[in-house]
Design a protein around this nucleic acid. Structure first.
Length: 431
RNA sequence: GGAGGGGUUCCCGAGUGGCCAAAGGGAUCAGACUGUAAAUCUGACGCGAAAGCUUCGGUGGUUCGAAUCCACCCCCCUCCA
């Protein structure tokens, strides 16, 4: 059953490298195995970059294995230097501890805790490092690492070779800490597989070596490819920033829109990476899209699948509701309750009173976050790209804010839906 | 410690006394086209509604005038020790 898993993963393009490739299929077929993936608290939420490994844990769980989600309360205090161009700023322990709590919850929603043999667990590496003293660490762990080997690792090579950037002793030690995690999880949970992004290869093989040296056990490693985009830009960022998994940082609507806007050249690959749809099913979608000669279905499928995975059915419904009203329906036909709902669903919105109006529209819309500067608003106004409740507003109206928000034009006496460009909406509630 | 080369607007990268808010490219935003695409074309792109204000590693100085010259300082790169 599990070599079938590996086959599926391979068909999805989710396997980059495997350590112990020859033995791993048989090992997985031989029973329920425990695997882990680490997530370091570098912010108060994970972003979609962590989604592939998270879903990977779930894929393994579905295939009958036991996933451990490790939240790096310890490693997060140190900072992973892997392929980072420069030394990172350390965060304070209490900040990191706060992030650990948040990530624990976040990570938990992707795996099942049913108490069965394959029940997931969340662990924190601070539990076994916090009280370890330096001498023990150096004698029992450090002794197994060869500096000669460590500086050969691709992940830190540029930091070591490039003068100027350099690497601190602290970050250099990161690999040892993570390696120790693997060995420790092997002891505690009989964990025999570590998965991670391709940038983690060095850290993972470090853990494999240490586990063998410390416990004489053979363990495995598997890495996933770096998610790339066909146009070469970085995946997971948009003009408005990182796409987070936390609904408070990236609303389900924005999240849904992110996937909906995915390029044709990427979308089928992403369906394989980010959804649980069968590969055959995805290929069928691709075929149908190619024949249709119009707007592809794939983006919609992707957006629905991933949004529902991350934000649940409710989040998806909210996202679809907003999308439907803004892009398909007529704004004027929205019921009062719809407008209230949109706001609750995460459509950017703000409330203000008439006497709080700034002098100009450029100020108002910039402050509302619709544009980065007044110049951009000016440009949009000059091109008739701004509408208020579907009524076009021109540059000449810039200084006439109250005229633009004429009570006569309000929806239900207080709502104004402002649109800038084709995709940016903001709901103003004027009291 | 010695010798040389650098730090320019989000990024890359021109610019060596006025014509510089600073070429060009990328990114980004907006328009046309379209599928809320891609490609392409157009406009914008330090801040400001405007008057105007603030930038070229930092601090002072020379000058009517400095990103450009001078002094000192900070940081980076290459080579030597």
């Amino acid at each position: 059953m599990s070599s079938a898993l590996l086959e599926d993963l391979r068909a999805r393009g989710l396997i980059f490298q495997i350590a112990g490739e020859d033995e791993l299929p048989a090992w997985l077929d031989g029973g329920t195995r425990t695997l882990y993936c680490g997530f370091d608290p570098t912010a108060d939420s994970l972003h979609i970059g962590s989604l592939v490994p998270l879903l990977m844990l779930r894929r393994f769980q579905h295939a009958g294995h036991k996933p451990l989600a490790l939240v790096g309360g310890a490693t997060g205090l140190i900072g992973d230097p892997s392929f980072k161009a420069q030394e990172r700023q350390l965060n304070t322990p209490d900040v990191v501890a706060g992030w650990v709590d948040k990530l624990k919850k976040q990570v938990s929603q992707f795996i099942d805790f049913d108490g069965s043999e394959t029940s997931a667990e969340v662990v924190n590496n601070l539990d076994w490092t916090a009280n370890m003293d330096v001498l023990t660490f150096l004698r029992d762990v450090g002794k197994h690492f060869s500096i000669n080997a460590m500086i050969q690792k691709e992940s830190v090579k540029q930091r070591i070779e490039r003068e100027g950037s350099g690497i601190s002793y602290t970050e250099f030690t990161y690999m040892i800490l993570q390696s120790f995690d693997f060995a420790e999880l092997n002891e505690r949970y009989d964990c025999t597989l570590q998965i991670g992004g391709s940038d983690q290869w060095g850290n993972i093989t470090g853990g494999i070596d240490l586990t063998r040296r410390l416990h004489g056990k053979q363990v495995f490693g598997l890495t996933m490819p770096l998610i790339t985009k066909a146009d070469g830009t970085k995946f997971g960022k948009t003009e408005s920033g990182t796409i987070w998994l936390d609904a408070n940082k990236t609303s389900p609507y924005a999240f849904y829109q992110f996937w909906l806007g995915c390029a044709d050249a990427d979308v089928y690959r992403f369906l394989k990476y980010f959804t649980f749809l069968d590969v055959a099913e995805i290929e069928e979608i691709e075929r149908a899209d190619a024949e249709r000669q119009g707007r592809p279905e794939a983006q919609g499928v992707l957006a629905r699948e991933v949004t529902s995975l991350v934000h649940g059915d409710e989040g998806l419904a909210a996202a679809e509701r907003i999308t439907e009203s803004l892009f398909s329906g007529s704004i004027d036909s929205l019921a009062e309750s719809d407008l209230a709902q949109l706001r609750q669903d995460g459509l950017p919105a703000s409330a203000m009173t008439r006497d709080a109006f700034p002098e100009t529209l450029t100020q108002l819309l910039t402050e509302a976050g619709m544009a980065a500067s007044g110049k951009q608003v000016k440009d949009a106004l000059g091109r008739n790209a701004v509408t208020i409740n579907s009524r076009p507003v021109g540059w000449e109206a810039n200084a006439d804010v109250s005229g633009c928000f004429d009570p006569e034009a309000a929806l239900y006496g207080r709502y104004y839906l402002v649109k800038l460009g084709k995709k940016k909406y903001h709901l103003f509630e004027i009291g």
